[in-house]
Design a binder for these strands. Structure first.
Lengths: 149, 149
DNA sequence: ATCAGTGCAAAGGATTTGCATTACA
DNA sequence: TGTAATGCAAATCCTTTGCACTGAT
């Protein structure tokens, strides 16, 4: 049976390995991210922390922390929407990909084991050490197809 | 035997369908894009046109044209690098995906028929009408793996 | 002739950064 | 204690936009 360390343990481990410090801010950011499911962006995370946590974290620190979380494999940038980076936490989650409707903005998440395996095959073939997979398909969802010019 | 219309014909057709005009600027942008292979961003395209073409095109027009070219399926945004959108032309090209090294920035293009098919399967399953597929894998290339902390 | 398209320069907006201050290790 | 991290505000920088002018249909 596979045991997986928690996101906070992963975070601590990553920071320690890199010689970074585990500050209260970094802890709060992680906690807040894992207190919700779904997608978020920097500004939104900032507002959530501001309204729900004792320890406030500045937007600058959020922006400085997100790349570290990505590097550690705890979150990833899923896509970019209206100029903003959209993230989701992936630690402890089953990997999945996205269908994004270009008209209504709806996001359908899907998982396909075969695609996952093929991606790994590709990396092996090129001797590439993957950190982040990202498959996104843009188009029109069932409801919107008839409404597009 | 499959015949495919040229990029300029495709461009004309798209603009006509949408009721847009084929201006000299739009023509030059398309021509310049197809005069090179590989990736480009807005600023770079602007400079290329400025130095190589009689008809200059402003950066604003470039920025207004790129989304139309994406919408028409002639080019696509491949990724985002240092805050900039990176594009490539896809009309008449075999679809492919990318491995991007997080250390040296090297981009490996690959093509896998099975992945293409699976993506189509997924869309069918969800009744989704795809416009743009994008699979990118970030990580470390063979040379860089040993150099990462 | 009309109305979309263009260039210019100014505006916008997400993200980054310099610097003084704070606080982990 | 020393050095990295934080907060603030200013700076960046890609991209968008308002407006007057030009030109394609």
């Amino acid at each position: 049976m596979e045991t997986r360390i928690s996101e906070i343990e992963k975070w601590e481990q990553f920071l320690r390995e890199k010689g970074y410090k585990l500050t209260p801010e970094r802890r709060v950011v992680l906690e807040e991210i894992f207190s919700h499911h779904g997608h978020f962006h920097a500004e939104e995370l900032y507002r959530r922390i501001k309204s729900r946590r004792k320890r406030k974290v500045s937007l600058a620190t959020i922006y400085r922390t997100l790349p570290l979380l990505v590097e550690s494999g705890i979150i990833r940038e899923v896509m970019r929407c209206e100029g903003r980076g959209i993230y989701e936490h992936i630690w402890g989650e089953k990997h999945h990909d996205h269908l994004v409707c270009m008209r209504c903005g709806k996001v359908i998440e899907f998982y396909d084991e075969r695609i996952e395996r093929l991606q790994q095959d590709i990396c092996k073939k090129y001797g590439f050490h993957p950190v982040e997979y990202r498959l996104g398909i843009k188009g029109y969802c069932q409801e919107c197809q008839s409404k597009v010019k």
